[in-house]
């Protein structure tokens, strides 16, 4: 083993190391970090979203049952890496995989209901009576009334995002139950029990067309400051 040779570090050496370290370090740290964190930068700093902002059809209002919620599938086009519309537009003839371009989610639709506080059962359903006579051709005011009285709820539990289900108890009381940790909500999505911190997520942008079709846009009733928790499965 040869003896170690410890030469002094000159001012030039020091500057050289400093320069090399800065240049190489900058190239090897900043771009990779931005590369990996680009979804964070796009979402948190620039406020961009992967989800299409247009109206998506859900169901016809006449399909909503009177005294219990029904689940419908809603399909949002999304733009994520290889699922972008750029590629589709560039090669319109080639049928590339469909599955990557949309994300499906279940929505619970129901009529707003008053709950009897003693029994927990539904006391009164706010279902407009004109629905018994017609299922399309609604006037402006009727559409307003329909919109006001429909619950459009995401099926993502406000606790940890598990899919909630509608369950009728032994004593006939209906509730949304989260199968993961037992969060409970009533038919309007109001928090009843368990660990969830809030009510079920409600779609805020809802519109009903003349033919009775219900459309939603992506977006929930999120209180300011608590926007970090969302149903991330759209």
């Amino acid at each position: 083993m040869t003896e170690l040779q410890k030469d002094p570090i000159t001012r030039g050496d020091f500057l050289g190391f400093g320069l090399l370290g800065t240049v190489v370090g900058a190239i090897l740290t900043i771009p990779p970090v931005a590369f990996v964190l680009s979804p964070v930068i796009k979402t948190d700093l620039l406020g961009e979203s992967d989800i299409d902002e247009g109206w998506q059809e859900v169901a016809s209002v006449s399909d909503i049952p009177t005294d219990e919620p029904a689940s419908f599938t809603i399909e949002f086009p999304i733009e994520q890496i290889y699922a972008g519309p750029d590629v589709q537009n560039q090669f319109p003839d080639e049928k590339r995989s469909d599955e990557e371009f949309t994300l499906k989610n279940a929505v619970w639709l129901s009529w707003k209901s008053e709950i009897n506080h003693d029994t927990g059962k539904i006391a009164k359903v706010e279902r407009p009576s004109f629905l018994d006579e017609k299922s399309s051709g609604f006037s402006e005011s009727e559409r307003e009334e329909l919109k006001k009285n429909i619950n459009v709820l995401s099926n993502s539990c406000a606790h940890l995002g598990c899919p909630v289900r509608w369950l009728i108890n032994l004593d006939g009381k209906g509730e949304f139950l989260c199968p993961c940790h037992g969060g409970l909500y009533d038919i309007n999505g109001t928090y009843e029990g368990g660990p969830p911190p809030r009510d079920m997520y409600r779609y805020v942008n809802v519109k009903i067309e003349e033919d009775g079709k219900l459309y939603v846009k992506h977006g929930y009733d999120i209180e300011p400051g608590l926007d970090k928790q969302q149903p991330y499965v759209v």
Partner: peptide
């Protein structure tokens, strides 16, 4: 994977059980 399911019961792997239970 079905993102639009309403009747699936998510469960963690057994070694995360204790953690999941803690969240209750």
């Amino acid at each position: 994977a079905n993102t639009a399911t309403v009747d699936y019961v998510p469960r963690p792997e057994w070694f995360f059980f204790f953690y999941e239970q803690m969240l209750m």
